[in-house]
Amino acid sequence: MAKSVFQFEAQDAQGAVVRTERLSRDKLLPAIKTIPATVVAMEACATAHYWARQIRDLGHEVRLLPPAYVKPFVQRNKTDARDAHAIAVAATRPDMPRVPVKSVAQQGARGLHTARDLLVGQRTQLINALRGHLAEFGLVGARGDAGAKAVIGFVEAGHPDIPRTLLAALRVLVRHWHEKVEAIAEIEAQIKAEAKADAVAQRLMTIPFVGPMIAHATRAAIGEGQQFDSARDYAAWLGLTPRTSASGQTRRTGRISKAGDQRLRRLYVLGATAALAKAKRHPDDMDPWLAELLKRRPARVAAVALAAKLARTVWAILTTGEAYDATRRRGQAGRLRPAAA
Rank of each mutant, 00 (worst) to 15 (best):
Q54Y: 01
Q227K: 13
A275R: 06
R76F: 05
R312D: 05
K309F: 01
V151C: 05
G132Q: 09
T206N: 10
Q122C: 05
L204R: 12
S4R: 14
E224W: 11
E156D: 14
P100R: 11
R329Y: 02
R281K: 13
E9S: 03
G15P: 10
V101R: 03
Y268A: 09
A199Y: 00
E9M: 11
R329V: 07
D57Y: 00
T47A: 14
I184Q: 06
D229L: 12
G108V: 03
A201M: 15
A311D: 02
A10D: 00
G260A: 08
L166R: 10
P100V: 10
P288L: 07
A37Y: 04
D287G: 07
R232C: 02
R131Y: 10
V40R: 00
V62W: 10
A37G: 01
P30M: 00
S257H: 02
E156C: 06
A150I: 05
M42F: 06
A13Y: 03
H282G: 08
L294H: 03
T273M: 13
A135I: 06
A88I: 04
H133P: 03
N77M: 05
L166N: 10
Q202Y: 05
A235W: 00
E322T: 13
A115Q: 11
T327I: 12
Y69A: 02
P160H: 06
A274G: 08
W237T: 09
V39S: 09
T165R: 13
A303P: 01
G321P: 02
G111F: 04
E322Y: 14
G211M: 05
I187D: 00
Q332C: 04
W177F: 12
V17W: 08
A68T: 04
G153I: 00
V104E: 15
D229K: 13
